[in-house]
Simulated assay, not measured.
Amino acid sequence: MVGVMALIEREGRLLLERRSDCGRWGMVGGAVEVDEPLGEALRREVREETGLSVSSSELFCVFSDPSKIVAYPDGNVVRVISFAYRVSVEDFSDLRRSPESLDLAFFSREEIEELDVIETGRPVLAAYFSGARGPVVLE
């Protein structure tokens, strides 16, 4: 599975969603459709999951660790390769959660360290908070 993740920051805090499929926190994002360019998938996922419109994006990292296998509650098991982008949005007034989310919230680095974050998001967040400049390849 190829996925996209959005690193959306406001006032030094990062937007995360608490997912309805597992109850854990992660970055906004999701699967890239077979016939879909990465940028289009990123804009679609951000719009679907938050109501926000992407004004610009920059590739931050590619996460390709072959040990990252995800088993979903519906029985699907996939290896994930993710492209994480720094994302700017036009306006935060349209922020709203989708049925895929139990909650959307902005968190500081310290607050994120205390959250139950999905495994595939942890290395991306660690690289992001380390001050790394993209693109970074996490294997």
Rank of each mutant, 00 (worst) to 15 (best):
V2A: 02
G3D: 06
G3V: 01
V4D: 08
M5A: 15
M5L: 06
A6R: 02
L7R: 07
I8H: 08
I8E: 05
I8K: 07
R10E: 15
E11Q: 14
E11D: 15
G12F: 09
R13C: 06
R13H: 08
L14A: 04
R18A: 03
R18D: 04
R18I: 01
R18T: 02
C22H: 04
G23Q: 03
R24V: 00
W25L: 02
W25K: 02
G26Q: 11
G26D: 05
G26P: 02
M27I: 05
V28G: 06
V28D: 05
G29E: 03
G29Q: 03
A31L: 10
E33T: 01
V34H: 10
E36W: 00
E36Y: 00
P37M: 00
P37R: 00
L38E: 00
L38P: 00
L38Q: 00
G39R: 00
A41T: 01
R43P: 00
R43S: 03
R44L: 01
R47M: 09
E48C: 04
E48D: 14
E49S: 10
T50M: 08
T50P: 12
G51L: 04
G51T: 11
L52I: 10
L52W: 07
S53I: 03
S53Y: 04
V54C: 10
S55L: 10
S55K: 14
S57W: 05
S57L: 07
E58F: 03
E58R: 15
L59I: 05
L59S: 05
F60P: 09
F60H: 07
C61Q: 03
V62I: 15
F63A: 13
S64H: 07
S64T: 09
D65Y: 03
K68G: 02
V70T: 14
A71C: 09
A71S: 15
A71N: 12
A71V: 12
Y72F: 15
P73E: 11
D74T: 05
D74G: 08
N76R: 15
V78P: 11
V78R: 15
V78W: 08
R79G: 11
I81G: 06
I81T: 15
S82K: 11
F83G: 01
A84H: 07
A84P: 13
A84K: 08
Y85V: 00
V87T: 10
D91V: 11
D94V: 02
L95K: 10
R96L: 06
R97C: 09
S98P: 08
P99D: 15
P99K: 14
E100H: 14
S101C: 14
L102Y: 08
L102Q: 13
L102G: 09
L104V: 04
S108V: 05
S108D: 11
R109K: 15
R109P: 09
E111V: 03
E111M: 06
I112W: 06
E113K: 15
E113D: 14
L115N: 13
I118C: 12
E119P: 05
P123H: 03
P123C: 04
V124W: 02
V124E: 07
A127L: 06
Y128N: 05
Y128V: 04
F129T: 08
F129N: 09
S130Q: 11
G131M: 06
R133M: 07
V136N: 12
V137A: 11
V137H: 13
V137Q: 12
V137K: 12
V137T: 14
